[in-house]
Design a protein around this nucleic acid. Structure first.
Length: 263
DNA sequence: ATGGTGGTCCTACCA
């Protein structure tokens, strides 16, 4: 079974690339982020025609997450916890998480808040969001240590210096600060392993390249998209890769898909 | 190649 995660940066402008990606890599479950549309705008017909079910959480033109599966899609949840942090005016639980059981694996699609600037309210929101996610994901494992769980998505954190094209450029910026990295590693320490990194060692291996300043051809990227797997799921991972080709050409998302193959 | 972002919606905001 193949599970992938991809920040598509608008599903409506990228639906043809999404369907081509599903075919090209023979994907069973795809978690997407930044759909940037409401429920009624989601282009589901193309997916249904290919034999995929989908569940989408989209409240406005911002954020938005979805799961696309051809191996079942059960027990859909649009929050990882009852006390999921809120943001905005008025405050709402934004469309940043959706989970479902697909082919026996509990798959989550997360779009972690960006943080904007260190000290910005959005930065505090980001840290709180990751801490709540750590609590929730720890509880899932406490309930069932053998649970098959995949925490996937755009984490908006580059956990290691190797995950950044030039650390000096990111001094004092979000994505690399110690509190953000600590929050990410706290989830790993709970028992969820980065199952992609062993198959895609750095340095110079990224999942995101800014649209500006020719970042992609200049190899100026970040590794911020991850698949974290529970212990029982980790042992099933046979290989993993980043589809860097998907970042090429006209009409690409600024993120590349990340894929795992499990036994 | 001597340039230089792209998505939302239409005016800034977000990344």
């Amino acid at each position: 079974m193949r599970i992938a995660t991809w920040n598509v940066n608008s599903i409506r402008s990228r639906i043809d690339r999404v369907t081509a990606f599903l075919e090209r890599h023979d994907i069973d479950v795809l978690a997407i982020q930044e759909t940037k549309c409401r429920e009624d705008q989601f282009p589901g017909l193309e997916l249904s025609a290919m034999g995929y079910e989908f569940a989408h959480q989209g409240l406005s033109q911002w954020n938005g997450v979805a799961l696309i599966s051809r191996v079942g899609l059960e027990d859909v949840a649009t929050q990882f916890a009852d006390d999921q942090p809120m943001f905005g005016e008025p405050e709402i639980v934004e469309a940043r998480s959706i989970g479902a059981t697909c082919g026996g694996v509990r798959v989550w699609s997360f779009y972690v808040p960006n943080g904007r600037e260190i000290g910005h309210p959005h930065y505090d929101y980001k840290l709180l969001w990751l801490e709540r996610l750590r609590q929730a994901s720890a509880e899932w494992l406490a309930e069932n240590p053998d649970a098959q769980i995949a925490l996937t998505g755009d984490w908006n954190v580059a956990p290691q210096d190797d995950d950044v094209w030039d650390m000096s450029v990111f001094e004092g910026h979000t994505h690399v600060s110690k509190p953000e990295r600590d929050a990410f590693h706290a989830i790993v320490d709970t028992g969820y392993a980065d199952v992609v990194r062993p198959f895609t060692p750095g340095p110079g291996v990224y999942t995101y390249w800014d649209y500006q300043q020719l970042a992609f051809p200049k190899k100026r990227g970040l590794r911020i998209d991850f698949i974290l797997a529970s212990p029982a799921l980790s042992t099933r991972v046979e290989t993993a890769w980043i589809d860097r080709e998907e970042r090429k050409g006209k009409g690409a998302s600024d993120h590349a898909p990340v894929i795992i193959e499990i036994a």
